[in-house]
């Protein structure tokens, strides 16, 4: 009985993890929308990169949208993520967008010259 209950709990947790993942990475038409974490730094970068690249390969994504709605901190590692994804999809004519960025992150993206390769909406 206990074993059954535990399996149920584990399954439910996995369900929830899957759900969280689909909330962070959604594909709408040929746009891959990536929900950026609260703090984008070198520590978080590897995970985002890995997941994004898997989705780009798996699902024939053409354009990428970075959603900064929840993001309050970003350093130059964030630029690395954007530049890397841009390199991957631009050769197939894809575009990169940044949405819902707060004032500071918008300023960071514009002053670092990122706006020449991405569109900040």
């Amino acid at each position: 009985m206990l074993v059954l209950f535990l399996t149920f709990l584990i399954l439910r947790r996995e369900d929830r993890q899957m759900e969280a993942k689909t909330r962070e990475y959604a594909i709408i038409d040929n746009y891959l929308c990536i929900k950026m974490p609260a703090e984008v730094d070198h520590h978080k970068a590897a995970g985002i990169r890995e997941c994004a690249d898997k989705m780009i390969l798996d699902d024939k994504v053409k354009n990428i949208v970075f959603d900064f709605e929840d993001t309050t901190f970003m350093d130059s590692s964030g630029l690395g993520i954007i530049i890397g994804r841009y390199r991957k999809i631009s050769c197939f004519g894809g575009k990169v967008y940044a949405v819902n960025a707060n004032e500071r992150i918008t300023r960071l993206l514009t002053t670092s010259g990122m706006t020449s390769i991405i569109e900040v909406l």
Binding site: R49, S76, S77, G80, I83, S112
Partner: peptide, 14 residues
Amino acid sequence: ENERSGMGFSFMEA
């Protein structure tokens, strides 16, 4: 290869 942007010191200086 690790996709560093090369902007670290520029950010510090800014």
